[in-house]
Design a binder for these strands. Structure first.
Length: 558
RNA sequence: UGGGGCGUCGCCAAGCGGGAAGGCACGGGGUUUUGGUCCCCGCAUCCGGAGGUUCGAAUCCUCCCGCCCCAGCCA
């Protein structure tokens, strides 16, 4: 049974259920996914998206897509486009509820004025260094700013003039007047507004004061009448501040709830690090198939279904965790096994000549497109005297339990015939370059009328009909489970995370369009890459099939 | 050393005073024209540790230990 068939209980679901029972929000459920458009979405965001949209869907509510674009120096339109595309691709719909924090700048400013009037905010002329120095430390309380007790009128005047552009960047900030001795450092008069003479990707030059996260976020939630404001654990310390602003303003007050962000083994999840990989050319871009970004995973061949199922499978809790790659891989395989058509491709070709097959002859054999889905039907695949099989499917000196081809041994070519290896042709260096085999015409289709059994079934491609394809084989991006915890995380990049081979593919694979997903029988799931050209298709390996033989052999060699 | 959070199987994760769910991984068996899929079976006498309360504790109390987050005019 898959994880999606049964809802795993988690504490956020419990909170919402309880709120609905008590009527805390009159039965409304409004969540939001609030990315900052300063990078591409990754699998960690997917967890949050699935949670927020999932809760809304489950409880008949809505989930807003809101760009938290309060810092013009780091945000770009390219990112908002990619985020919209990725959330859609994941399968979620925000209806009309697409919002931008920048649309609230006017309202936020008015609220700040209101807070000043109430005596809860002041303009500080100290430099950022002075502010930092006066903030104190984890164990020492901070000192109050000399500007802390300016009159309300002076604060009002100064704040208006900040907005009017009379002061240079960094010369003044608006601060909340809370408690410089608070044990929670976030409460030591946090900065609400800074002066930034920078063009914003949406508001242009309309503003030169921009709100800080803590001030802005609760307001955004309040304005949109969000009920459950779900965020990650590091904001737990900020909740008192979230609550303080809304309480002092006496406005609609959503509930902030924190959960543990996703960590995936053998990759990194911070936008800063992902950006660095892109900028330094360690990967080909945000959508490099080795990246944990949604665009990368999409290009790699992951399906939205599999990612949603993964999100459900890993659960939602408050403890830090490092999720095993095998869970993600399980989810893609599960979905692709059901949905991906099969085809044959030989990644590491070894020529086979069927000596008793008439020269010049060929025929077409019926192959099942997906044994998991009879509705997918069959296709005709050409067969001839010369074929390619996988190099690893032949062993001159087979180890115990090896069930594939070796001298004198008979195996089945899938959907074709039984063949027996009669001769091995080697080059000057002693490498096996060709196999001379005979086939049994009675076994047409791969069945033996006399009931004789064969231990192995091999995939193959007709040499005369095969096309070449570039196939990109991916491995984990890093060689250590938690690269972010290493002092020099880049030193642990996996030098073998990408291997490119030229494969022999069956004719039906020649003209597939980018994004086409299928299984190369016995090898794994693959997805046609946008780099494909008419004469040269390119495939990305999404994930291998489970490989029991590799496991057995690995154990024997140990 | 201040504050906030968290510790249940190799990895996730339920459990909310009365039989330690489930999934992944792993091991064993069966089916199989993918050593794939599928199907069976196994896998914590134990819940970070030590005390205590209770007829009864992973669940309540106390102390201890460990891990994560916070000193951006980032989010």
């Amino acid at each position: 049974m898959s994880a999606s068939d049964e809802r795993i209980p988690h504490f956020i679901r419990e909170i919402i259920r309880e709120d609905n029972r008590t009527g805390k929000w009159e039965g409304r459920v409004v969540t939001r996914f609030p990315p900052e458009p300063n990078g591409y979405l990754h699998i960690g965001h997917a967890k949050s998206i699935c949670l927020n949209f999932g809760m809304a869907l489950e409880f008949g509510g809505v989930c807003h897509l809101r760009f938290d674009d309060t810092n013009p120096t780091r945000e770009e339109d390219e990112y908002v486009r990619s985020i919209i595309e990725d959330v859609r691709w994941l399968g979620f719909d925000w209806g009309d509820h697409l919002y931008y924090a920048s649309d609230y700048f006017g309202l936020m400013f008015d609220h700040a004025v209101a807070l000043i009037r109430k005596g809860f905010a002041y303009v500080d002329d100290q430099t950022s260094e002075q502010i930092r120095e006066a903030r104190g430390t984890l164990t020492k309380p901070g000192r109050e700013s000399p500007y802390r007790n300016r009159s309300i009128d002076e604060n009002l005047d100064l704040f208006e003039r900040m907005k009017a552009g009379e002061f240079p960047d960094g010369s003044k900030v608006l601060r909340a007047k809370i408690d410089m001795a608070a044990s929670n450092i976030n409460l030591r008069d946090p900065v609400m507004y800074r002066i930034l003479h920078a063009a914003h990707h949406r508001t242009g030059d309309a503003w030169c004061v921009y709100p800080m996260y803590d001030w802005a976020h609760g307001l955004e939630d309040s304005i949109e009448r969000v009920t459950h404001s779900i965020c990650t654990l590091e904001f737990e310390d900020h909740r008192p501040l979230y609550d303080w602003f809304l309480d002092k303003l006496e406005i609609y007050h959503p509930q902030q709830i924190e959960f543990a962000r996703l960590n995936l083994a053998f990759t990194v999840m911070s936008k800063r690090k992902l950006l660095q990989l892109v900028r330094e050319g360690r990967v080909s871009g945000w959508d490099d198939p080795r990246m944990p970004t949604l665009s990368g995973m999409r290009r790699r061949g992951y399906t939205p279904e599999s990612i949603r199922n993964f999100a459900e499978m890993i659960g939602v809790a408050k403890r830090d965790s490092l999720v095993d790659m095998s869970m993600l891989e399980y989810c893609v395989r599960e979905h692709l096994n059901k949905s991906a058509p099969r085809a044959m491709a030989v990644l590491d070709p070894l020529r086979v000549v069927i000596t008793n097959y008439p020269e010049g002859r060929s025929e077409e054999l019926d192959c099942i497109n997906n044994p998991e889905d009879p509705a997918e039907g069959t296709r005709r695949v050409p067969f001839g005297r010369e074929l390619y099989i996988e190099q690893e499917d032949f062993r001159e000196d087979p180890p115990p339990k090896f069930h594939r081809l070796s001298p004198g041994r008979e195996v089945r070519l899938r959907y074709a015939y039984f063949i027996t290896c009669r001769d091995v042709v080697k080059d000057a260096d002693g490498r096996v370059v060709e196999l001379r085999c005979t086939y049994d015409p009675e076994t047409h289709g791969g069945d033996s009328p006399d009931g004789r059994k064969v231990k192995g079934t091999l995939h193959w491609v007709s040499a005369a009909h095969a096309a070449d394809a570039e196939v990109r084989l991916y491995d984990r991006l890093f060689t250590v489970p938690d690269p972010a915890s290493e002092t020099d995380w880049l030193a642990h990049l996996n030098p073998r995370s990408l291997e490119v081979v030229t494969a022999k593919i069956e004719p039906c694979l020649k003209d597939v369009s980018p994004g086409y997903r299928c299984q190369f029988e016995r090898k794994g799931y693959f997805c046609a890459d946008p780099d494909s050209r008419p004469d040269r298709p390119v495939f990305n390996r999404t994930v291998t099939l489970r490989d029991t033989w590799a496991k057995i052999e690995g154990k024997m060699n140990r």
